[in-house]
Design a protein around this nucleic acid. Sequence first.
DNA 1: CAAACGATTTTCT
DNA 2: GAAAATCGTTTGG
Length: 203
Amino acid sequence: MGMLLDKTFYTRTDVVQIARELLGKVLVTNIDGKHSAGMIVETEAYAGAGDKASHAYGNRRTRRTEVMFAEGGVAYVYLCYGIHHLLNVVTNIADVPHAVLIRGLEPLEGIDVMMERRAALVLKPSLTAGPGALSAAIGVTTKLSGVSLHGAEIQIEDRGIKVPGDSIVEATRVGVGYAAEDAYLPYRFYIKGNKYVSKGKGL
DNA sequence: CAAACGATTTTCT
DNA sequence: GAAAATCGTTTGG
């Protein structure tokens, strides 16, 4: 219980496989002195240089995307629409900008903290269903971009939760229609029937 | 230096 | 179902 994922989990080269394996893992944060944790139920892979949907397509290297070029095992947090913080897990070896977007989380611990951060009155799936929503709930902001997943603020644990293969659904990514043919790649994974899976936009 | 846009969510009609 | 909110990053002049 509570086994931190080894660094070698993140430095593997198959980002799609990592995205699939992250389902059922537990994302833990300790931010502003507040603890919260939730099970990952939805992810999307972003395959760097060859993926038009990735910020790092064509090895585009800027101050923002620099974090993705780091060795796997750090967080990449991006601000979208000036409002939402999206949490990604950087994978692969250094200089290969692969990442996995965490899109859905099932609350396990610190639910009161999450609700407080989201100003929610009742616990409902929308608390953590969706990348911007879950980031807000667990206190992740762009200030945490680049921090290690083995550090104090953010960790990902394996608590022995097993996700049966037939409960994993493979699908196309959400909100990346601008990526042309790459928008149809089966890079999205989620746990079948889980209430905390985002609906996405065009489903 | 100025302008356009987005890996989304919420709210209103 | 449609539109607004809102600002850092990127791109062009």
